[in-house]
Write a protein that binds this DNA or RNA. Structure first.
Length: 100
DNA sequence: ATCATGACTAATG
DNA sequence: CCATTAGCCATGA
């Protein structure tokens, strides 16, 4: 088991989530189906404009993987960005709901 | 407090 | 289009 996995396992309780993390998750949850937002957008919504990288960190370790529509968060330049579950899955999800 | 890390972004070559 | 550089920020050790 890698460190990262241990960390993830450690934060599976909302109590362990920082304010920033909660805000980020809420912001992402607020993204309507078929819509996509940039990491910057989420950062601003979370109250820390410019913290796009930090947003990435949150989504990366977020224990609510498929629950939260983290696949609707892409790079500001329109690129797919990343996805802890594999870009393939992310692309598929986007193609299903965004493209529609 | 300090350091390393990364699903970022913009600029440059 | 790809690689590099530099700025940016939250998090964990």
């Amino acid at each position: 088991m890698t460190k990262k996995e241990i960390y993830r396992n450690k934060i599976k309780n909302t109590s362990d989530l920082t304010k920033f993390q909660k805000k980020v998750l809420l912001a992402v949850l607020g993204i309507p189906r078929g819509e996509v937002r940039s990491y910057s957008w989420v950062a601003g919504k979370a109250g820390s404009p410019g913290a796009s990288r930090a947003v990435g960190q949150v989504l990366k370790i977020n224990p609510y993987a498929p629950q939260v529509p983290c696949h609707r968060v892409i790079s500001s330049d329109g690129s797919i960005g990343g996805y802890s579950g594999g870009l393939t899955r992310k692309r598929r999800l986007l193609k299903k709901e965004e493209l529609k």
